[in-house]
Structure formats: structure tokens, C-alpha cells
Amino acid sequence: MPSVKDLAEKTIAVTGGHRACAGCPEPMIARWILMSSDRPVIAALATGCLEVCSTIFPYTAWNVPYIHVAFENVAAVASGIVTACKALKKRGEYDKEVNIVAFAGDGGTYDIGLQALSGALERGHRFVFVCMDNQAYMNTGIQRSGATPHYAATTTSPAGAQAKGKPQKRKDIMGIVAAHGIPYAAQAAPSHWKDLLTKAEKAFKVDGPAFLNVLIPCNLGWGFEPEETLELSRLAVETCFWPLYEVENGKVKINYKPRHKVPVVEFLKRQRRYRHLFEGDHKELLEEIQSEVDQNWQQLLSREALSAA
């Protein structure tokens, strides 16, 4: 990772003046990721929070070339940019070395964007796909997605007399992406910014597709105070709810192992989306979530051990 001093000298690629919610880490993370590239960056965005808050005509927060086309196709749009770049270079009509990055939310990655993502990964274009994973369709008003965790309440998986939030578990998007055999996939969180920057830097360097799944604590959708964003991110990591790990050329490496694993309830109880689990006796549901977290963590540890062997 470059030194903080070096980073401070980098051009601010995503400027202030955007309309992200107070407490939203997305513009900050986008800025960090763009800072991690040693080449000029071209950004493609899927429809979503970051897109709508940063480019309201006639303003733009982007100091780098930027394109937004639609919701589900950012990986395909990025494929087009990468290919155009290659085609123009082949004919001597372009000579710059650039990096291409695609940003999408979890909807544009796990759900509606999965096909285009899978296609682009399979074709092996050299680009970085960043999933800003806030675990629901926050831009349209907190609807469940394939990334919404078990028992979290959203406006389309509400808690009620007959329902305890989302009845299904979230997709293992890292597993899905890694199964394409791409050179680099990593999971990161803004509370651990050095780790995030290092991963972004690695992602920009590999020769092929790279994937970053970044946790976005969303104060509006998760239900916490705007100043608590990074605290929630830290709790997600310390509870192993959101492990920081990478899959590099098929090898799993966990980048941070909490010395004392914090019980997941400490993370859950801070958020309105889990409030129903704390009203009345839902001990068994809380235990179920804890056991899922434990199981995932154990699996990750054994995958890491297997990679090291």
C-alpha cells in the first residue's frame, strides 16, 4: 500500500458536493479505490446509490471519465470499454495504460447484475469490479436482495406477526465469483481501510478480472446513527459476520482474524433491521445467526488451511 503521504498527493477522483446521505461511506470508498490505481482510471457505474448521488446534471462529482448505462449491465459496459481500449491500441490509435473499474451495489452484483458479471469474468477482461454491498436495495427504499442477511427486516421482507425478516440466507457472492477462477477476489470493509486500499491496489495490478466486495454499513437501511458507520463496519469484522479475506489465484487467505471473536448479537442489536429479534423471546433465532456466522468462519479457516497446505 502507498504511504498516507503519497495518497494525500493523489488527485481527488470523487469530489465533495455529491448528494450521498450523511454517514454513507460509498463516495469515500470510491475515492480510496481510485487512489489505489497507479494508472488513470475510467469508471463505469451501475444504477444505484453511488450513481444517483454523484452525477445529478449539470453536476458531476467525478474527476475521471465516467459512464453510467443501466442497472444490470455494468460489467458488460466495462467489457466494452476494455475492448475498445485494446482495439484502438492494436491500431496505434491509443497509447495510454489505464485501469477500468466498475461499481455496482449488491443488487447490481448478486441479483440483476449477476449474468453480466459472470459473462465478463468468464471472458477474462482486465477490469476491477467493485460491489458496494449495503445488503439491500437501499436506493429504492430498502428492499431485500440476494445479499440481505438472514432475518434482517427490509421493506419487502418485513418483520410481522408471521415473519421474522428475511427468511433466507444471503448468497455467497465471493464463492460464486471465485468459482470463475479469476486471479483475484477479495472482501473488505471501510473500517479496515489499509486492508481495503491494499486489496484495491492488488486488484488493479492483476492481469484479468478482479473483484472486491466491500461492506457498506447503511445508516438508513440498517437503522443506526450516521456517525456510527465505521463502528458498525468494525463490529461486522470483529464478530466475523464480515470476514476480511481474499482469494488470490484460487488460494484463500484471511487477512484479519479477531483475537477475541465478538458475539454477533453485539453487531445485530445496534441495528433497527434486527430490532424484531430483540422484542420478545427470539433467543433461538439469534443463536441460529451466531451458528451460521461460526460455521462460515470455520469453513473459511479450513479453506485457508487447505490453500496453505
Binding site: 475510467i42 463505469a44 459512464i67 448505462v69 443501466a70 444490470e72 449491465n73 460489467a75 458488460a76 459496459v77 466495462a78 467489457s79 466494452g80 470499454i81 475492448t83 475498445a84 481500449c85 482495439a87 484502438l88 449474468q115 453480466a116 459472470s118 459473462g119 465478463a120 468468464e122
Partner: peptide, 16 residues
């Protein structure tokens, strides 16, 4: 992998 992506890639390419 689809016509949707064909046109999306063309848009990305043409904008480049």
C-alpha cells in the same frame, strides 16, 4: 453472454 450485454458492450465501446 446475451444480447443485453452485446448492446451494453457496444455502448461502452462506442463511448470510448
Amino acid at each position: 453472454e446475451s444480447e443485453h450485454s452485446a448492446m451494453s458492450a457496444c455502448i461502452g465501446g462506442a463511448a470510448s
